[in-house]
Design a protein around this nucleic acid. Structure first.
Lengths: 127, 127
DNA sequence: CAGAATCCCATTAGATACTG
DNA sequence: CAGTATCTAATGGGATTCTG
């Protein structure tokens, strides 16, 4: 421990930087359109892959799988496979996922609240 | 008004669909990494272009300009140009911008709160 | 039905150079 | 300093095909 200090600063500094870069990585994962829309669509419900595909308008098969894998990897959604035929796979938000969802809800709410303001701002800007 | 109803449904339906697609458009604009990081960086402060570039780690000159224009267009940031030489341009969140910022803060807070959980989820998933 | 893999085109974003 | 324009490399994302 003490050996590093002279050359590289306190160990805690390194830990903080590591935590920051991790936080940033997670933020980048999560702060994208499809991920947030999927989280919003799931809400408190459990949905199958095909149901999610219907709920999240405009998402492609590929983007849905990719983002679901990423969310699963980060522990935001739980993926339950029922080994039936045909297969049935269900997705549910985990506790951290639901916690994040409240923030996403806030963004959605914000969007609808400011529709008028934004529309007029656009009109003004585009002129 | 009444003429459309038979063929296209109630006018309110059309209005609702329009509002929804607008909301979706705004959401897509805003729900991206750089836009959210810029909003978070601005916070309550007023920052110059070059200061923002330093605050938002890793953002390129181009991405910063593009996103600032987009945020300005949507009325989330105010852009003030001081016609001096060299030029000085300052960016500030508008009221709607600040409102959205609280939601972004929530996401940032969430990220840091769940660092450990996510890191372990990743470890588990990657195995 | 869920999803992995491939192909391929469109968009994105970085680097660089130029302007007021 | 702030911003635009251009070029290019990389990535994203859709369509399609194939498997359990």
């Amino acid at each position: 421990m003490a050996t590093k200090q002279a050359l590289k600063g306190l160990p805690e500094d390194a830990d903080l930087r590591r935590a920051d870069s991790l936080a940033r990585e997670i933020f980048s994962d999560v702060a994208n359109k499809w991920a947030l829309l999927i989280i919003e669509a799931l809400g408190e419900r459990t949905l199958r892959f095909s149901e999610l595909r219907n709920e999240v308008e405009g998402v492609s098969h590929k983007m849905l799988t990719q983002n679901l894998r990423m969310l699963e990897r980060n522990g935001l959604v739980d993926r339950e496979v029922h080994p039936t035929v045909p297969p049935r796979v269900e997705y549910t938000l985990t506790e951290p996922g639901r916690a994040l969802r409240t923030a996403v809800d806030a963004i959605c709410g914000w969007t609808h609240q400011h529709l008028a303001h934004i529309e007029s701002a656009r009109g003004h800007f585009d002129a």
